[in-house]
């Protein structure tokens, strides 16, 4: 990696009370790279993403985006940096008071009621990318199935063409076929848009398909990071136990 990393974490730590969720996480992600983070539930994967997005303030360590340290930015500067990000939240996190098309174009309107016709066209175009037709445009999120909500949320995340996209468990709760559609979509986003992607997942099939590299988070630290081809030959007993889904092993 000769160029400046797109995202660089150095000694990132965060505790909630006595619970040390992140304990010195260091990681560099190159532009255009797709990294998958695996680890048990509650191992701090989501907290790591939220620290990078500036939603949670880390206790220690630095976060650099394109070489710029963002841990001590003002709210206004942070808003500027956030323009680079798109995020697919675990539960979708769609705004249930707004119709689908307002949700998808929210990053562009930022809450203002403007240019409805143009926004609907943009929404339609982005929904098409995630395999949804124009018939959902005017529906409310609560009228959609879980899988459709996830795809609308994905359309919302990609609508502003972000440079960096985070996916928090993109395939959880989807049937295997839909899950694979999402995997293809993530792969094509990285390839076509040149976006840098960080995906949190428990889905090994998904991890193998979309990742260039895989990192494993355990007890607040990155205990293994390597190319996806080595995921099953890591020689690391923790990784082995996790990817094979065994109940017995060093992780309990």
């Amino acid at each position: 990696m000769s160029a400046v990393p797109k995202i660089e974490l150095d000694g990132l730590s965060k505790a909630f009370g006595a619970n040390r969720v992140l304990d010195g996480v260091s990681l560099a992600i190159a532009p255009g790279e797709s990294l998958t983070v695996i680890g048990q539930s509650g191992s701090g994967k989501s907290v790591m993403l939220k620290c990078i997005l500036g939603l949670i303030r880390p206790d220690a360590g630095s976060i650099r985006i394109d070489g710029e340290d963002i841990t001590r930015l003002s709210e206004r500067d942070m808003a500027r940096v956030r323009a680079k990000f798109g995020m697919l939240f675990q539960g979708g996190a769609l705004f249930d008071s707004l119709p689908v098309w307002r949700n998808v174009t929210f990053a562009l309107t930022r809450g203002r009621n403007r240019s409805a016709a143009r926004m609907k066209a943009i929404a339609e175009e982005n929904l098409e990318k995630v395999g949804l037709g124009r018939q959902v445009l005017n529906l409310r999120p609560s009228e959609l199935s879980g899988g459709m909500q996830k795809r609308v949320a994905l359309a919302r995340a990609i609508a502003p063409r972000p440079e960096i996209i985070f996916f928090d468990e993109p395939t959880t709760g989807l049937d295997p076929i839909r899950a694979d559609v999402i995997n293809d979509l993530i792969t094509s986003l990285v390839e076509d848009l040149g976006a840098t992607a960080v995906t949190i997942t428990h889905d090994m099939a998904s991890a193998r398909k979309i990742a260039h590299r895989v990192a494993m988070l355990y007890q607040g630290e990155i205990i293994w990071c390597g190319p996806r081809d080595q995921l099953y030959e890591s020689g690391n007993p923790y990784v082995d136990q996790f990817v094979q889904g065994r109940a017995d092993g060093p992780i309990r």
Partner: peptide, 21 residues
């Protein structure tokens, strides 16, 4: 509900300040 379903986080991520909005 917006807090526990991460809608407030989503709002911030989409560069809209929940205090103002």
């Amino acid at each position: 509900t917006m807090r526990v379903t991460e809608q407030l986080d989503a709002l911030t991520t989409l560069r809209t300040d929940p205090y103002r909005y």
